[in-house]
């Protein structure tokens, strides 16, 4: 496999096949807590993407210098630094969203998705592959959060990106922007995800070996 194929593969796997939220089921805390509106979800996704890409790049760059006994502490220092920077930049540039996200921005430090990628990937691969992996995982996470945020905001507030969709007579389905709505919507999306996956696997199996189909019939 050529080098660029490998890079593209590492980039793409996070979007769908190994999507951090829907397949690996990592980073559930922000995925449930801040997806009550589309804007909050996107900003949280992008902040996580920034921290993930910056940390993965640096960890991969320093992978030969960090002794394994102190690697976790060093990763956490690196991640916490980028989170603090992201926190301050958001507070200065998007103060309203920053206030809504509240404690969940500092909590990016303990998002297991980020530490997980350092340990499982960045510490063992070249900078190029580590960054491709981080961008893919970060975009996959942003996509998942945005999907949850868009659906929950439409149902729970009757709006999208703060713009009312259904006119003044729409009675919002308030539970969707409350925590139970997050769990319900995540469960439904996981269901669709695994259904699609199962169908695809079944089709591939049939194409590879059509005999069992006859046997079943």
């Amino acid at each position: 496999m050529s080098q660029s194929d490998r890079t593209a593969e590492e980039l793409l796997k996070g979007l769908w096949k190994e999507n951090p939220t829907f397949v690996q089921v990592l980073g559930m805390c922000p995925a449930l807590a801040v997806t009550n509106s589309a804007v909050n979800a996107i900003v949280m996704g992008l902040a996580t993407l920034f921290v993930l890409v910056a940390s993965s790049g640096l960890v991969s760059m320093l992978r030969h210098f960090i002794p394994k006994q102190v690697r976790i502490s060093t990763y956490i220092v690196i991640i916490a630094t980028f989170v603090s920077v992201a926190d301050l930049v958001l507070q200065a540039t998007l103060p309203v969203v920053h206030k809504e996200l509240g404690a969940f921005i500092p909590l990016i430090v303990v998002n297991c998705l980020i530490l997980g990628r350092q340990e499982a990937f960045a510490a063992k691969n070249t900078v190029k592959l580590a960054i491709a992996d981080a961008i893919g995982m970060g975009l996959g996470f942003t996509f998942a959060l945005t999907l949850l945020g868009v659906v929950r905001e439409i149902l729970g507030s009757g709006s999208l990106f703060g713009m009312a969709l259904f006119g003044p007579n729409y009675e919002p389905w308030v539970v969707m922007i409350l925590p139970p709505g997050g769990f319900i919507m995540l469960g439904l999306i996981l269901l669709v995800f695994s259904w699609v996956k199962q169908r695809r696997q079944a089709r591939q199996a049939r194409q590879a070996d059509p005999a069992p189909k006859v046997g079943v019939a």
Binding site: T74, V77, I78, S84, V85, V89
Partner: peptide, 21 residues
């Protein structure tokens, strides 16, 4: 030494961002 350098660089980066914003 690794942790000390990491902490030092982290401090510089955070204080820099704090002062800028």
């Amino acid at each position: 030494a690794t942790l000390t350098i990491a902490g030092l660089l982290s401090g510089v980066a955070i204080v820099g961002a704090w002062q800028t914003t």
